[in-house]
Computed example of a mutant assay.
Amino acid sequence: MKKITYSVLAALLLSPVASATLLTNPSDPRTWQGATINTFAGLFAQTNAQIIANNLLDDGNFDPTGYVAGSLIQYNGGLPTLGASGTSLDLPNNASANDASYNYVVSSNNPAVAANAIDQHWIQTNNTIGATIWDLGFQASKAAVFNTIDHGPLPQESIESTVYLSNDKVNWTQAVTERVWLEGIYSDTSVLWDGFVYAVGTGTNSTFRYASVIWGGPGALHADGDNEINGIMGLQENFSGNPVPEAHTWLLLGLGFAGLRYIRRSV
Rank of each mutant, 00 (worst) to 15 (best):
Y102M: 12
N110Y: 06
A140S: 11
Q156F: 10
G130P: 04
P92I: 10
T132D: 07
W134F: 09
D150K: 00
N98Y: 13
S107F: 14
N94A: 11
T148K: 03
Q124F: 05
V105Q: 06
D150W: 08
A144P: 04
H121A: 11
T125A: 02
G152W: 14
H121C: 02
F138P: 11
G86N: 03
L154A: 00
S107C: 11
G86A: 03
S108R: 07
D135T: 04
L91T: 06
A115E: 08
I123P: 00
G83D: 11
A117T: 05
V106D: 13
G137F: 08
F146I: 01
L154D: 04
N110T: 07
Y104F: 15
G86Y: 02
A112R: 07
W134Q: 02
G130T: 06
A144V: 09
T125E: 02
Q156W: 03
H121M: 06
N127M: 10
D119N: 10
I133K: 00
A140H: 01
D90H: 04
P155N: 07
S101Q: 05
L136I: 13
P153T: 11
A95S: 13
A97P: 04
N116K: 00
I129G: 04
Q120T: 06
Q120W: 01
N126S: 07
A114W: 05
S85Y: 02
S101A: 09
N103A: 15
V145S: 01
K142E: 11
N103I: 11
G137E: 11
I118R: 00
N98A: 14
Q139A: 15
N103S: 13
A84K: 10
V105G: 03
W134R: 05
H151N: 15
N109S: 15
N109R: 05
N103Y: 09
G83L: 14
A131Y: 01
T125K: 01
N127E: 13
G152K: 09
A114N: 05
V106E: 15
Q124I: 11
T128E: 00
A117E: 03
D150E: 13
T87S: 13
I149V: 09
A114D: 08
L91N: 06
I123H: 01
A131D: 14
I118A: 00
A140Q: 02
A117Y: 00
A131H: 04
A144E: 08
H121R: 05
V113L: 02
P111I: 12
A100W: 01
